[in-house]
Amino acid sequence: MTFSLIGRCARTGQLGAAATTSSLAVGARVHAVAPRIGAVLTQHRTDPRLGPRGIALLRSGCSAEETIAALVASTPDHKWRQLAAIDAAGRTAHFHGARVKPASNAAHGRDVVAIGNILSSDEVPAAMAEAFAADPSLPLAERLVRGLEAGEAAGGEYGDVRSASLLVHGDHDFALVDLRVDGDAAPITRLRALWEEYAPLVDAYVVRVIDPDNAIAL
C-alpha cells in the first residue's frame, strides 16, 4: 500500500522523491536519491537494498531504463518488487513484478515518474505526475508534495496511510530537504505543514555548511 514519485527540476538539476504508505518509516525504505546522479524507488514487498544498488548503477553511467533492467535481472524475487528510476537527464523507467497487488500503475511525465500499489484507483499515479508537471517554476520539493497530495485526492491507497516522506538533493553531497512523518493519521497533511515550515530555512542551512562565517542564527 504505497504511492510515491521521483522527479527532477530542469532549472536547478535538483533530484528528489516523496512517498507515503500504510506502514511506518517509508522514508527509510522506499527511496534513494544522489545529487546529479538520479533517484530510485523500491516498494511493494520492499527491498531497501535495491535503492543504493540502483544509485550505483546510475552513477556508473546506466540510464534509468538500463538501471531498472539490471535491478530486475539481478533480483531473484523481482516478482514481488515495484521499482522506478530517474537519471540525471530526467529519463524515467519502472517495473511491476507479476505479484504486485492491484490496483497498481505507473505514470511518466517530463522529469517525473509516479508509481503505486494496492491503490483505490489505478488513476492515482497519473494524478501525481500531472500535479508535479503543472508548474515547473516551483521548487522541486513543493512539486513533489503536490504530487503526493494529488495522489491522495485521486483516491490514494486502498486503506489509510501512516507515514510520508520528502527527500531532495541539490549540488552538494547532503540533502537539501529530508522530512519524515511516522505514525500519523494524516501524514501527507503533516508533511505539507513541515515543508512549509522548513522551506524558508533551506538556503540558510546550506550556508551553514559551505560558509559558516556568514551563517545566521536559526
Rank of each mutant, 00 (worst) to 15 (best):
I188S: 12
W80T: 04
M1E: 08
R146I: 00
L58E: 14
M128F: 13
A175E: 13
T189G: 13
A28C: 10
T75I: 12
L119S: 08
G170P: 03
T21N: 09
L179T: 15
D171Q: 15
T12D: 12
R53L: 01
D122V: 08
L201A: 03
R180C: 06
R143D: 07
E152H: 08
F174D: 00
A107M: 13
V40S: 02
A154V: 00
A39T: 13
I188W: 09
D135C: 09
R81L: 03
P136W: 06
L148P: 00
E142Y: 05
G54A: 04
M128K: 12
E130D: 08
H169K: 14
I68G: 04
G13R: 13
A32S: 12
G155D: 06
D173V: 08
A154I: 04
I115E: 01
V206P: 07
E142P: 06
G156C: 11
Q82W: 05
R146F: 02
T2R: 03
Q82E: 14
A73D: 10
L144S: 01
L201S: 04
T46I: 09
A129F: 04
A154Y: 04
P48A: 13
R143N: 13
R99A: 00
A34R: 02
R8S: 15
F95Q: 00
E197S: 01
L148H: 00
V72P: 13
D160L: 03
F95V: 05
R143K: 00
I6L: 14
A89P: 11
V26R: 02
L71I: 10
L58N: 15
A69R: 13
A217K: 01
A89I: 05
P139Y: 10
V202R: 11
G97P: 02
E130L: 12
G7F: 06
F95K: 02
L24M: 07
L138D: 13
I188A: 03
P200N: 01
G27K: 01
V209L: 10
A70W: 07
P187I: 13
T21E: 10
R11W: 07
F132S: 06
A98L: 06
V206A: 05
H108F: 01
I55H: 01
V30T: 15
A141L: 06
V161L: 08
A204V: 01
S23E: 11
L148D: 00
H96M: 11
A134C: 11
I86H: 00
A215H: 03
R143W: 14
